[in-house]
Design a protein around this nucleic acid. Sequence first.
DNA 1: GAGATCACG
DNA 2: ACGTACGTGATCTCT
Length: 883
Amino acid sequence: MTEKKKKLVLVDGSSVAFRSFYGLMNLDSFRNKNGLHTNALFAFNNILERIFQTEEPTHMLVAFDSGKTTFRNELYGNYKGGRDSMPSEMAEQWPYFSVLVRAFGGKTYELVNYEADDIIGTFSRLADQAGYDVVIISGDKDMTQLVTDNIRVDITVKGVSELKSYTPETIREEYGLEPLQIIDMKGLMGDPSDNYPGVTKVGEKTALKLLAEYGSIENLYGHVEEMKKSKLKENLINDKDNAFLSKTLATIDLDSPVTLSLDDLAVEGKNIDQLVEFYREMDFNGFLSKLGVESEDRSESFEEIHFETLTEIKPEHFSDRMSLYVEMLEDNYHEGTIIALSWGADGQIYTASLETVLASAAFKKWAEDEAMEKVVYDGKRTTVMLHYVGIELRGVIFDILLASYILNTKDNSKDLAEVAQEYGYNDVSYDETVYGKGAKQAVPEDAVLHDHLARKAKAIRSLYAQLNTELADNVQKDLYYDIELPLSFVLARMEIKGIKVDPERLLKMKEEFAGRLIEIEKSVYAEAGEEFNINSPKQLGVILFEKMGYPVIKKTKTGYSTAVDVLEKLQAQAPIVEHILNYRQLAKLQSTYVEGLLKYIRPETGKIHTRYLQTLTQTGRLSSVDPNLQNIPIRMEEGRKIRQAFVPQKEGWKIFASDYSQIELRVLAHISGDEHLREAFIEGQDIHTSTAMRVFGVDKPEDVTSNLRRQAKAVNFGVVYGISDYGLSQNLNITRRAAQEFIDKYFDKYPGVKRFMEDIVKEAKENGYVETLFHRRRYLPDIDNRNFNLRSFAERTAINSPIQGTAADIIKVAMVQMEKALEEKGLQANMLLQVHDELIFECPAEEIPILAKLVPEVMEHAVALSVPMKVDSNYGDSWYEAK
DNA sequence: GAGATCACG
DNA sequence: ACGTACGTGATCTCT
């Protein structure tokens, strides 16, 4: 047996610790019982776990910077000068990083006068020479200078959740440089974060260009006089000293006087006792459970809970304002099975099996009694689950999950324990701990199960007052009580009602598509000269760009892009592309819509019951799953025919649909107050034509060509998305410069919109969040991030969220009112679907004239804006015909 | 489980 | 200089 090759993992402890800290900036939610912040330790633990799992190192070292000054300060006094001191939230965690590493069985090391980089550089060289495989993990790209055939460098991206690997090949690909030339690049660029200058006005692009030509700083300066006169040449000459100094500073010392040998770095294996102790100290209960010690230890640390598991339920087991929890492991409550239930109030908690509950009249009576108020966790889910066992839940006055989502859209876990912990309540286990996950998921013995459910019932009841107060503090009680909570029950009824889908229609399409797919496949193979999997972008890329030699237009992380916009650019020169596009379109329809939907038709009723996720999106929109009925094709006629399968539930009934016209732009007109945008809506103009006239200086609407209108439409969309020149240029296939001109023109003509955009970003910076008209919040922690990408994204989000979110608020109000109106008028019509700005109903044919008046009436006046709302309606024998 | 692609607003 | 349009979900391939 050959010995396994030795593998050394070197972690840049200081840099990864900081990345952990800033990557998981949710400071408030990561504190242990003593108030110590633990966010960075939590993230650091994750990365250590991943290292041991994926790399399986035989040797390992985590290096830390030591002290304030190093030999580099002797070369350059200002080295790393001007840095803010470590935030106190980080400083208090600092001593624990090495404790954690040692518990994992790894070594830590620091060396006076040297940085972590130098320790790592030195050991990587030693290990490379000794024939080890070496992996370096850091948040600092400078490390890539250490890459060799045996040394790989992984740099953290997105906090620490992702790593990007650098090998000699990837460095050549990305920079066109050999690893050692990274030092020259840094020399020319300098490093603002380490506070040393390079050559004035030289950034990455220029540095790469220079190195492509001259190879190194030394050679560059050997030939600098031969360069033709330019600002660049001047700067290079002036800053020569800087360039050489900063190259020296950027060079990692491969020969630092380390006092350990490679053998000292051998991995010792996890010290479970130390890990358990550490996790307990930090309150990392999730990690404890992964060690398999959680359940006993954790429940020991729990307060004892008093509850009764009933085998016979009587009226005295109920009182007003109790919590209610119904347990089911499946996500999809339309087809899952209830395991058991729990309910109660202070000092009076009960649990019972489903069988026991169904055998008693008392439970049903209490559950259905509107006057008996209940607090729940996920009211919609609870309502639907109980409906399927013949109980119509009423009297729900508070939903913890829904409230938590309103308070912070990020706090929306389906596991009650996670949300509870967010609010400082820890006396309840995670579902994963109790039930396990994946293939190992199972219901535990009754004692454990009922204890878990009793704790949930207690948690729900305890959290109610706290969340209610926070809603009041945030001025969100109206949003919660008048919109979201009533809506959850409207949605429950829509889901339960379901929509009828004609399987015959879909089966016909399936057959037709199958035949055509085979034909198209043949054409593709004929053009390509071989058979391959057209569904594989990887294989398709090889055929298109290697075998057939078409020009590469765009690349993805993993290879060639074969997305539509790329293929369309090839269409003129590549006959195969037409077939591929046809294939893609049909394959999508076939797998996602024809076959996909058929799977969801319930044979007993012929209906599909989607689930709306009310606590998922960051803007307040709904989403739809299992199946998604909010993305049924409409843009292409071929796909639109799918809608022919969506029909009314009864003979002689019709499908009726109403949609808001331009709701987001109307919302923008309202909240920005821009007079020109408002005027266009008040006067009932076509908004894109009106924008075209103003932006392109056209006097009469009839002179706006379809092309101008199309461009204006793209600009309008761009505005709603938080416009950027690049985004618009991509969308319109024009130059960035032209796009920027459009944008400038637009802002010139719609100054109110411009002001809104500036103000809302300012507001986000001041408050840390933005709001809709109804005070729905979205927190934007990245709004001040030093990373340009993250910050820009947060800024665009600050612009878009109040617009998209207010539109979502409006249709939600309309839905609540709509259901009430249908009820009051005693109509048979059912509201079935919501697709962001439209509502779809079914009704007897004779009710069509009533709906045609009632629905737009309700939708248009659900909310009064400073511009009118407009709603268009249609109806027919299927969803397809309601267009 | 992630990435690419494509369906919708 | 940076590298992008905003919000979603399902399916397929591939590691």
